[in-house]
Amino acid sequence: MLSTRADELEELGMIWDTADAQFQENLAAARAYYAEAGTLAAPRHATMLDKPVGQWLTNLRRPGGLGKDPERAARRAEQLAAIDPDWNPGQLGWTVDWQRHYVGLCAVLEAGGTLEELLPGVTYRGDDIGRWLARQQRDWARLNTEQQRRLGVLGVKPAVRPQKATVRTSAKAGAAKGSDAFTRGVAALTQYIRREARTVVPRGHTEVVDGTPVRLGVWLSNIKNRRDRLSEQQLAALAQLGLDWA
């Protein structure tokens, strides 16, 4: 009898647990967000269905965020995992930001993009996937085994670091080394100008050329400060790229 009355009340919209009702509303927003973004690694400011889904998910990932009741917490975790198995990347050993960029990389590749085309500046849903990819290749040794495996499946490999040449004391060897650095810098600057259509480079910007990161902003600042030591050929190369000071 009591069960029948409870069913009748629920049909009329009776809510027995407001906390669970609110969770289900937010869960519906999270489901809609996943359908659009392909991940629950939402930035904190993300909203969906007029719900602050990004902040809500952030709160859930915190210790005790799923509630004090173990059974309820386990049930909620299962519901979130049913939407996105990687909804809480901290349990896997990486950040929400890493997870979101990884999903962005997968989406770009699935859309027909290639790793060679993913240079810094290529974005997906506002995230610079190209810059992130270059950082993963550069800092490959810092990634955990599962991160390396996931990226490896996509064809990502660690950046090839140039071998350090044997130190020579001759001025000729030093000049050759400086010439190589200049050549790499010009190649990086050329690539940057073609993509960005401008010669102003942020000091902290790193450009990846043939898998090798070049600290282009620092290089350009240094080369400008010692332009009086550059050869006529080097100055001409820079002037041809549109650098007025050369």
Rank of each mutant, 00 (worst) to 15 (best):
T4K: 12
R5K: 12
A6F: 10
E8K: 08
L9E: 13
L9G: 06
T18E: 15
A19S: 13
A21T: 05
Q22I: 10
Q22K: 13
Q24G: 01
E25H: 06
L27V: 03
L27A: 04
Y33A: 15
Y33I: 01
G38C: 04
A41L: 07
P43C: 11
P43A: 07
P43D: 15
P43S: 09
H45S: 14
M48W: 00
M48K: 13
L49D: 15
G54C: 06
G54V: 05
W56Y: 10
W56F: 12
L57D: 02
L57Q: 01
R61L: 04
P63K: 08
P63Q: 10
G64S: 11
L66R: 10
G67Y: 04
D69G: 04
D69T: 06
P70F: 03
E71G: 05
R72V: 15
R72Y: 00
A73G: 08
E78C: 04
Q79H: 06
Q79P: 02
L80I: 02
A82R: 06
D84T: 07
W87S: 07
N88Q: 14
P89F: 02
L92P: 05
L92H: 12
G93W: 08
V96P: 00
Y102V: 03
V103R: 13
V103G: 01
G104V: 02
V108L: 15
L109K: 04
E110R: 14
E110V: 00
A111D: 12
G112S: 09
T114W: 01
T114V: 03
E116D: 15
L118T: 07
L119E: 15
G121E: 13
G121H: 08
V122Q: 09
V122C: 09
R125A: 15
D127V: 10
D127A: 14
D128Y: 03
I129Y: 08
R131Q: 11
W132N: 03
L133F: 02
A134R: 07
A134E: 09
R135Q: 15
R135D: 15
D139P: 06
D139R: 14
W140H: 04
N144G: 11
T145F: 08
T145P: 00
Q148N: 02
Q148F: 04
R150V: 04
R150M: 13
L151E: 06
L154K: 05
G155T: 03
P158D: 14
P158I: 08
V160E: 14
A165D: 13
T166L: 14
V167H: 09
R168Q: 14
R168Y: 08
A171N: 08
K172S: 11
A173Q: 06
A176S: 10
A176I: 09
G178H: 09
A181T: 00
R184C: 01
G185F: 00
A188F: 03
T190A: 12
I193Q: 10
I193T: 07
R195E: 14
E196C: 02
E196F: 08
A197I: 00
G204Q: 12
G204W: 03
G204V: 03
H205Y: 14
V208Y: 07
V208A: 11
V208M: 12
V214S: 02
L216W: 10
S221G: 08
I223V: 13
R227K: 15
D228G: 03
D228Q: 13
R229M: 09
L235F: 00
L241S: 09
G242P: 02
G242F: 02
L243E: 11
W245K: 09
A246V: 03
